[in-house]
């Protein structure tokens, strides 16, 4: 991390991921998901893909900076409530995904970490909405519907993040700016697209 080229690489990678998250946050507003799942205010959470990649591949400080700067810029574009929504949901999701990331590859796959992130994102946003509206009842009436939809959207964003994380784990150039391998895992970086296929399970091969 000390070499200057690595520092520049880290800065540009973070900047690229922030702009990617911003574009995804804005683009997902154009997707009329309400037509498929009739829940007002439901979103795909595409920016969660970027947070997921940052949590599993980069240092925690990069992920925190990414979420905060994304929320700030999004707030400048579309107002204070959007900023509070984005920040509360984003930071809570980040925290929960970081904790779940400790068990990555042993207990959870990328999809599982995406699931807890999507659920935490919704819980954080409902907290802020309940606070702004001064209506604690919002927790019981609206949250379960959002949680159920987060199972679907969380799976989709998790699957979408799989090839990106595989690219990071295989990249030689990114090695220097990635967080160290989990000491509890087998030592090498796990390939997120590697599966124990049912057919191979029963076979005689290793």
């Amino acid at each position: 991390m000390s070499r200057q080229s690595d520092r520049i690489r880290r800065l540009t990678t973070d900047a690229l991921l922030i702009s990617l998250a911003l574009v995804l946050s804005i683009a997902e507003r154009w997707i009329p998901l309400e037509l498929l799942i009739p829940v007002p205010g439901i979103k795909l959470g595409l920016a969660n893909i970027v947070t997921l990649v940052a949590v599993l591949c980069l240092y925690p400080i990069d992920a925190i900076a990414l979420v905060t700067v994304r929320s700030l810029i999004l707030g400048l574009i579309s107002g204070l409530t959007t900023f509070l929504f984005s920040l509360s949901g984003g930071l809570l999701a980040l925290m929960v995904m970081w904790l779940a990331g400790k068990l990555y590859d042993r207990v959870f796959s990328v999809i599982g970490i995406s699931l807890v992130g999507a659920a935490a994102h919704n819980i954080g946003q409902i907290f802020v909405a309940g606070f702004i509206l001064r209506e604690p009842l919002l927790m019981t009436t609206y949250l379960p519907v959002l949680l159920l939809t987060s199972l679907v959207t969380g799976t989709l964003t998790g699957v979408a993040a799989l090839p990106v994380i595989r690219w990071f784990t295989r990249s030689n150039q990114m090695k220097a700016i990635m967080k160290p391998v989990n000491p509890t895992s087998s030592g090498s970086r796990p390939d997120p697209l590697e599966t124990k296929h049912p057919a191979q399970h029963n076979g005689s091969d290793v």
Partner: peptide, 21 residues
Amino acid sequence: HWLKWGDWLIYGLVGTLSAIL
């Protein structure tokens, strides 16, 4: 096929919690 046992646990927990709520 990519899911691990913890993932199925999350599906179950979140599903049950939201059903109760």
